[in-house]
Amino acid sequence: MKQLTVFIENRMGRLEEVTDILSKNNINIICISLADTSEYGMLRMIVSQPAAACEVLCNSGFSALLTDVTAVKLPHHFGSLKKLSGLLSSNSIDISYMYALTSGDDAAIVIKTSDNEKAEALISEEYEILGASKVYNM
């Protein structure tokens, strides 16, 4: 699954510009993550049409790129995230970052690891991995 990453400097109205371009192109934002860094930040999003979104943003002068990430459905009970992180750490896979994704009554996360392929293989034995086409249409 592709995540859209956009570089934005910390300036009034920058986020609005990005979201304006996406909305004018009928691109839906499924989920989003942005940290409170000081001068610039990376806006990470799962969107309905990642390739088209990346293209329109680049054409508007933004720095944007697509990154491979994994969406995992997690049961809504104690310890499920603990179990997932234990599974990755015991196999020496680093978690670069993760953020939440709503998925009906269940919880889900978007995760980027040091080895997405290996992580997906491991995770899929215990959890449901949400496919790109499913997530893009949420």
Binding site: Q3, T5, S63, T67, S96
Partner: peptide, 14 residues
């Protein structure tokens, strides 16, 4: 300005 080719998804690289 960040050169377009240096765009990354990684804070550490920036």
């Amino acid at each position: 300005e960040l050169a377009p080719a240096s765009m990354t998804d990684d804070y550490k690289a920036l």
